[in-house]
Simulated assay, not measured.
Amino acid sequence: MSTGPRRWSRRLGKRLAVVVTALASAVPLTLTAAEAAPARAAACNGYVGLTFDDGPSGSTSALLNALTRNGLRATMFNQGQYAAANPALVRAQVAAGMWVANHSYTHPHLTRLSRAQIDSEIARTQQAIAGAGGGTPKLFRPPYGETDATVKSVAAAHGLTEIIWNVDSQDWNGASTDAIVRAAARLTNGQVILMHDWSANTLAAVPRIAQGLAARNLCAGMISPQTGRAVAPG
């Protein structure tokens, strides 16, 4: 049997391999993050603020992994006492592209405290987060969403913008994963949702939250210190 066709086929295969290799070296087969960013931005018809209170905790690493795997960024409202105790987790939040914010030091009912006590709660948290490598927070969420003129005034004196929420996931109240996903589905452009770092049901909801936002051409954004609304990451 003639081996001519086989030899010709092998030679052609080698030539094609050379051509493909040359093209691969001249033309990148995958986009860099910078090149892919405009395409992602074009798909965003609005931005929402995903927020997680009460960290960092033993659940933080799993939450960060879930968020990054699903292309989400979020604002982490950390308690100062936990930031001081777990500086590596604060740095992990920053490394994962999250924004770190102030949620008081011990999570008290601030409206029941004196001005000096409120100031201590906020100031110590600013110091703890900065000392842990989280930068100097620009956003503050009062525990339980409880605030008044004094709380707002003290926060403002520390250069903080008070952030409450538009949608409550109710994860703190035992909401199911399905209920948390439905809550996120109510978000509209610029709005902020309350979730918690330690909730297992919230962790399970993250992939579905990402899918739901993508289906509506909404992206996870940063919370503007100027307006308190979610905007494109700066």
Rank of each mutant, 00 (worst) to 15 (best):
G159A: 06
H109I: 09
I164W: 13
T136Q: 13
K138H: 15
I118C: 00
H109S: 14
I122T: 02
H107Q: 09
S169M: 11
A149E: 01
D178T: 13
S120T: 15
I163W: 06
P108D: 12
R115I: 00
E162T: 15
Q117D: 14
L110G: 02
P143E: 10
K152C: 03
E162K: 01
H158K: 01
G145A: 11
I129F: 03
T136N: 13
T150P: 05
A128Q: 08
G159M: 08
W172I: 06
S169I: 10
G135I: 03
T111R: 10
D119I: 07
E162M: 08
I122E: 01
W99N: 15
V151P: 00
K152R: 15
W165E: 14
A155Y: 02
L160Q: 12
D178M: 02
E121V: 06
D168A: 07
H158G: 05
G174Q: 12
V181A: 03
S169Y: 11
K152V: 03
T106V: 10
N173I: 01
A123Q: 15
W172L: 03
A116H: 04
R124D: 14
T106S: 15
E121A: 02
V167D: 00
I180H: 07
D119N: 15
T177D: 04
S176V: 03
N173G: 01
W165A: 10
E121R: 06
P108W: 11
D178W: 04
I122C: 04
I122G: 00
A96Q: 09
G135N: 12
S169L: 10
N102S: 09
R115H: 04
S176Y: 02
